[in-house]
Simulated scan of single mutants.
Amino acid sequence: MAEREAGAGQPAAATGAGQPTRWLTDDEQAAWRAYQAASQLLSDHLDRQLQRDSGLPHAYYMLLVWLSEAPERAMRMTDLAERAKITRSRLSHAITRLENDGWVRRAECPTDRRGQLAVLTDSGFAALEAAAPGHVRAVRTAVFDRLDPEAVAALTAVMRTVAEGLSPAGSSDLPWRR
């Protein structure tokens, strides 16, 4: 089964609950493999473009985007970790790098003495504005110029369904909620 994660003709295997494994059909296997390849290639493509043009990893670019969209360009660190789907420790490391670049600063949270805010600085906003056109071109060329409006709508629906299924409300075992 190293060659195929699951597929037609695979032997039945017991799951942890004692139920037989529901192997992927050939069509599901093809869709899964296509998703994996596209996801990895797109992530690498966007990261390389941003690193080359702005010296910024894609994950850090997205932190700047979310801060730029927040009221007063500030978010609680725990909320930002959840939005980015990363651990608080990883977020703290990223914010430290962005602080060193002068693009983000930390501030005390006025509503929670234990909380901290990440605040996008004017310099960080300017860096985001400079990086955004190249990033949008890369996204448009890699994804949206290849899709018709119906495919965009289908992609949106599928990705929302998958994301909602993986982020159940109140689940505390997700890394960014610990």
Rank of each mutant, 00 (worst) to 15 (best):
L128A: 01
G7I: 04
E129C: 11
R22V: 13
V119Y: 11
L56Q: 01
M1C: 06
L42T: 05
A157G: 05
R137S: 12
V65H: 14
R177E: 09
L56A: 00
S68L: 03
E72W: 10
Y60V: 00
N100Q: 12
R105Y: 03
M62D: 00
N100Y: 00
L50G: 03
S123I: 06
A74L: 03
Q116T: 06
R83T: 07
R48W: 11
T96V: 11
L56P: 00
W103R: 04
A138V: 04
L64M: 11
P71R: 14
R88S: 09
A169T: 15
R33T: 05
G115Y: 05
L117M: 07
T78R: 15
W66D: 05
A81C: 08
G102R: 12
R178Q: 13
R140G: 05
G18W: 10
S39M: 11
V162A: 09
A37T: 08
E108W: 03
G18D: 01
L166I: 01
Q40L: 08
L128M: 00
A118C: 04
D101H: 08
T87Q: 02
E82T: 11
L166M: 15
A138G: 01
A107M: 08
A6L: 12
V104E: 03
V139Y: 09
G18C: 03
S89T: 09
R178M: 05
R22Q: 14
W23C: 02
K85D: 06
L46D: 02
P11L: 11
M62I: 09
E28K: 01
D47G: 03
L42H: 06
L50P: 04
E3I: 06
D145Q: 15
W32M: 05
A154R: 15
L120Y: 07
S54I: 03
L147H: 14
L67K: 02
P57T: 09
E150V: 05
V104P: 01
D112L: 02
A131T: 04
A126Y: 09
A118N: 00
A17N: 14
R90W: 13
Q40P: 04
Y35I: 07
R52P: 01
R33M: 09
H58I: 10
P168D: 06
R73D: 00
A153F: 08
E69P: 01
P110R: 06
L128Y: 15
M1F: 10
E72M: 03
G170F: 12
A12T: 09
E3F: 12
R22M: 08
M77K: 12
G165W: 09
S89L: 04
A34Q: 10
L50Y: 12
A13I: 08
A107D: 13
A38Y: 07
W66G: 04
L80H: 06
Q10W: 13
C109G: 01
A127M: 09
F144T: 00
D79V: 06
H45E: 04
L147Q: 11
L56C: 01
I86T: 14
A94R: 08
M62R: 13
A30T: 05
E5D: 14
A142V: 07
L120V: 03
T141L: 07
A81P: 05
L155V: 10
A38K: 01
S54Y: 02
V158N: 01
